[in-house]
Amino acid sequence: MTAFFNAVGFGVVTAALLALATTGLSLQYGVSRLPNFAQGDIMTVGAYAAYAANGPFHSIAIDGIAAALAGAAMAWLVYMALIRPFASRGTNRLTAVVSTLAGSLIIQDVLLIIFGGNATAFPTIQGATEHIGPFLFTTEQLVIIGVALVVIAGLHATLKFTFIGKAVRAVADHRDLSRVSGLPAGMLTQLTWAVSGVLTGIAGFVLGLTAGALVPTLGFDYLLIIFAAAVVGGIGNVGGALFGALIVGLGMTVAAVYISSDYKEVVALILLIATILIRPTGLFGGRSSARRFAV
C-alpha cells in the first residue's frame, strides 16, 4: 500500500503536467476546432528552451519562463503556419491533421539537428520529501503542482472575468458572430494560441524535469496521452481537462505500480480509444455541446 501512496504523488505530478498541456489543447481547439498533432512537440520545444536557459542562468524560475515564452512562440507559429492556412479555406479537416503532423515531423527533426539524438541530461532539483496525509511528495513535486494550479486558475479567472477572456470565449462560441460584432477574431485567435503555448511550454518543462533527459521525441511520445486526457475530460472544456488529466495521470501511475511501467502508456491509450468509441463527448462533456468552451 505504501507503494500505492508514493505512486499517487508522482501521479498527481503527471496529472499536473497533463492538465497544463490539455488545457492548452482545449484552448486551441476552442478557437480553431481543429486537432493539433504538433501539441507534443510544442512541449518538447519548451523543455529544450528551459534546458538552454539553464546553462547560463541556473535558475529554475528563469527555466520556466524560457519554456513558457518558447512554447508561446512555437504555438503561435504552429497556428500561423499549420492551422490558419487551412482553417480559412474551409477544406477537409484531415488537411489540418496532415499539416500538423508534417509540422511535428519538422519540429522533431530540427531539434534533432540542433541538439543531436542522444538524450540530453536535464537538471533535476533534489528536494526534501514531505508527507501530506499518507502521500509522499518531494518539494519539487509540490512546486510543480502549485504552479500548475495557479496557472490554470489564473487562466480560468481570465476567461471568466476579464473582457478579453470573454471575447475569446465569444470567438470560441461562434466565430462569425464575433466577427460581425466587430471583435478582432483573428487577433484573438492568435493570442489564444500563444497563451495555449505558455501552458504547453511549462508542461514541457515539467515533463523534462520528471523525465530527467531530453530527446526530440519527448513530447510526441506524450501526444496521445494529452489527447487521452482531453478526450476523457471532454475536449474544449477547462474543468474537463483537469478531470481528464487526473484520471489519466493517476491511471498511468497506478498501472505502473501494479502492472508494469512499460505498459503505463498503454493504459492511457486504452482509456483514449474506449472513450472515443463509447462516449466521444467525454465523461465530463456532453450535457450541452453549446457549453463546450464553458469555464
Binding site: 471575447a167 470565449r169 462560441d173 458572430l177 460584432s181 468552451f293
Partner: peptide
C-alpha cells in the same frame, strides 16, 4: 445569433467591443 456560454449582459458587452 448569440454567444451561448456568455451571459446576456456579456453578450451585449461583446456587441460594444
Amino acid at each position: 445569433n448569440v454567444f451561448p456560454s456568455l451571459t446576456v449582459r456579456e453578450n451585449l458587452e461583446m456587441g460594444c467591443f
